[in-house]
Design a protein around this nucleic acid. Sequence first.
DNA 1: ATGTCACATCTAATGTGA
Length: 257
Amino acid sequence: MKVASWNVNSIRARHDRLVAWTAEHRPDVLCLQEIKVENDQFPRESLEAQGYRWALWGQRTYNGVAIAARSELRDVVVGFGDEPGDAEARAIAATVDGVRIASVYIPNGQAVGSDKFAYKLAWLARLRAWLDRAVDPGQPFLLCGDFNVAPEDRDVHDPAAWAGKIHCSEPERAALRQVLGWGLVDVFRRHHEEGDHYSWWDYRGVSFFKNRGLRIDHIFASASMAARSRGCEIDREARKGQNASDHAPVYATFDAG
DNA sequence: ATGTCACATCTAATGTGA
């Protein structure tokens, strides 16, 4: 099973690139974030023509998450079911070929100490609480998405410059560790120990050209799925050229269960 | 170098969020 995750930063702006990417890489499951469109405006047909089905939780302008899969998407759930906190479309889960898979878009947080930063930390705590009550740690499970957190300094192009800043601050990293502490493994780090691998580069300036990025997009796996993982890569090629998202897709392969 | 995108709105330059 090949599972990919990509913050496309608008499905409409990224449509042609996405269609070309899935045609080339042919993931079995694709988790998307920031689709930025309501379900009834979502361009389902292009990937359906490649054999995919959809689970969608769209939203106008901001946010919006989706899962595409070649097999049936069972038991689709949107949000955490902890109203009234579920106003923003940031989480969707489905079961595909016996694997529970979630696509999540963690709030950006804007700046350490801001109201949005507090919301980000609270959202990560709600994510952990959702794992505790809604997912069986013994089952095959993948938590995929844009976490807006670089877990360690080796995930940061310039740790000194980013120290204490948004995406890299200790409160965010601690909140992310709480999520991982549920029983999740960073699949990318199972296969790559070294730094200089990033999944996001600022649109401004020469950040991509100079590889000044952060690794904030992740595929986290339960123990049984981590044991089945055979590789994990970030497709830097997808960040190149005109009309690219500011995020590159990350993808992992797993042995059959 | 507050440098680029994407989207929205009293359709045209500006605000918001990233």
